[in-house]
Simulated scan of single mutants.
Amino acid sequence: MSLDVETPEPPELETDTDPNAYDDVDVSGANDTHRDDLDAFLREGAWDEAFAEWAAQSDLDESEWAIVLDLDLLSRFDFFWDDFADRVGYHAPGLPEDWKERDLHPDLDSWSTVSAINAELTELGRIVSERLKADYVDWDADYEAPDDLPDF
């Protein structure tokens, strides 16, 4: 399946957000998250390229995509450099477990829709993260392992 929609604008990355504040992220050590650089890369084409790749294989339909846009979920993506892991980390937005009680959207009516949206946004984050690392990031990790690690 594929999703035939216009590529939205990339999210604006906040430079003062601590990646460890997210429940789904664990970044070890103090490091430069390179958000300014990553934000520039997203605008230089990484977002467009990754979004096209994702949309070509996405299982979302247009009504589910409309929910994503109506709730402005894409603006809540975050991408950051994880020096310890030598990767571009990400936080994907998602719909909360209490979506029904909160009456988030009139067309949001089933757990399967919520699950599909959350899974697809996570997949979009993964693809963007991998595209940034593979084709845009030109710095190496500064983390150096301590000399006293045991030999295996």
Rank of each mutant, 00 (worst) to 15 (best):
L3W: 08
D4I: 10
E6A: 15
P8T: 11
E9Y: 06
E14M: 11
T15P: 01
T17M: 09
D18L: 03
A21C: 06
D32Y: 06
T33G: 00
T33C: 05
H34Y: 13
H34Q: 14
R35D: 09
D36A: 12
D37Q: 14
D37Y: 12
D39C: 04
R43C: 04
A46M: 02
A46F: 05
W47N: 03
W47Q: 01
F51W: 09
A52N: 10
E53N: 09
I67Y: 04
D72L: 04
L74F: 12
R76K: 13
F80M: 08
D82I: 06
F84C: 00
F84I: 01
A85Y: 11
R87D: 15
A92M: 07
G94A: 06
L95I: 14
P96Q: 09
W99F: 02
D103Q: 12
S112G: 07
V114S: 01
S115D: 15
I117G: 03
L121H: 04
L121A: 04
L124D: 01
G125C: 12
I127A: 08
I127F: 09
Y136A: 14
V137A: 13
D138F: 04
W139E: 10
D140H: 12
A141F: 05
A141Y: 01
E144K: 11
E144R: 14
L149P: 02
P150E: 12
F152G: 05
